[in-house]
Design a protein around this nucleic acid. Structure first.
Lengths: 238, 238
DNA sequence: CGGCTTGTTGATTCACCTCAAGGTGGGTGG
DNA sequence: CCACCCACCTTGAGGTGAATCAACAAGCCG
């Protein structure tokens, strides 16, 4: 962790030993744009970030929300999405080049790997949420995701607008709004203003989202590759 | 690249210097299950792999397809999805522990990072496809993805069943089938049997999928962070 | 106060799901 | 070789849920 060009004060070092710059953006500001060279990747320190793409027809599609501790912008080549600040945000910004730089010590590389793993699991979670079939299922899964993100506090802060949620879940603002009130009418949640939701019936939401409450399908310790054949030497053609 | 417990013949070394084991699975076989400890990650050498989760109500949801060169199973903790062979497959299997192992040389760590970046971009692409609104848009985007995957050859091999495609796009088999014939009737594609599609009107498919044909929204060299404020020292509260 | 953005709600239309019925191809056994 | 089965795919008719179209309410700011 030598000082190169960056002053020590720019290095937060809270969670990371990698060289980083800390930046602040106001709500709505662009952090990077789709198509720019992906020379940096980011970790959210404070606030909420969204990544989005625009279709030719003008439709907007959000591919993810990123909260404190989440990583975004870990793209290959050019950014596949733009990133914008949903609220005022503080982000830590890392240079991609620093990973492959020979002068970067190994423990910090390890950390880069662990960060990338975290980014992967975020993407996976979002793939699962969007994959739900009905509006109710999608919103239930989304709210549970927000809850998990906030340390399982049933009092959820919803920083993004209805239209953000709609463009993320593949619904319209109307349907999102209706589904909120529907969930409230069914006694599953309580909506307090535009940015606050209280989860009343957690189990009910889980059931809607199709989540298994506790146990997963497989024993974590179960045997791996019971069906595999080991390949030695060269592969047979085709 | 010392031999530890694995014989040299197990190390393909085609693209990777990381220690790996090469395995073969028959079509339909389970590679790993949701909930198992995520001790390994995988690269497809030959064939097609799908990752999937099951909802409580029995519905299956596929979160991705993985082709030659793609990485899957890079999860944190336990696997969030199961992985199954769509066709007969050959995969290269890496141990997660080898990354953080101090004895692993740095260049191989760099490679691990690059592999993870690739896995991220795959996930991003799939998030974008599933995010489309109508069945036609989804299938168009999916076919274009398959085409891109096969070096832009307009003659596409479709290894997965209609029901796999449906569970991936969040549609029913019926709708997928109907949409195939619809695209064919409109002269955009030609369906030859269940696993072969010829792209006739590429531009038309792109338009449906909402993809910009060539230029991206931003100049790759454009300035980064025009709106950012640098944060020095400590952050202000909240 | 008026203008603007964001969110909610109602009525209608349309796309996709459901239910139901064939069709096709590969495999097996007589 | 054909009969049969079975898994997979296709297609049709009708119902349902979300989009669309259209108001209206609630904040926010000048």
């Amino acid at each position: 962790m030598q000082s190169l060009l960056t002053a020590p004060t720019m290095m937060e070092g809270l969670h990371s030993n990698l060289r980083s710059t800390t930046l602040r953006f106001r709500a709505g500001q662009l952090i990077f744009d789709e198509g720019q060279k992906a020379t940096r990747w980011y970790e959210v320190v404070q606030g909420t970030v969204r990544t989005c793409r625009f279709h030719m027809d003008g439709h907007r599609h959000l591919t993810g929300f990123f909260f404190s501790g989440d990583v975004f912008g870990a793209d290959h080549g050019t950014y596949g999405t733009a990133a914008e600040a949903v609220t005022d945000v503080v982000v830590r910004c890392y240079r991609v080049g620093d990973i492959t730089d020979d002068s970067t010590p190994k423990p910090q590389l390890d950390e880069a790997v662990s960060i990338l793993f975290r980014a992967m699991s975020t993407a996976q979670r979002y793939l699962f949420i969007i994959g739900h079939r009905t509006a109710t299922e999608k919103l239930a899964a989304f709210l549970l995701c927000l809850k998990q993100q906030a340390n399982d506090d049933p009092n959820i802060f919803v920083p993004m607008s209805r239209s953000d949620i709609a463009d993320f879940l593949g619904l319209t603002v109307h349907t999102v709004s209706r589904t909120f009130t529907d969930l409230a009418r069914r006694g599953l949640i309580e909506v307090n203003g535009r940015d606050s939701v209280l989860i009343i019936n957690n189990a009910g939401l889980c059931r809607l989202a199709g989540e298994y409450q506790d146990s997963l399908t497989a024993d974590p310790e179960s045997d791996i590759h019971p069906a595999a054949e080991l390949c030695l030497g060269e592969l047979s053609a085709a």
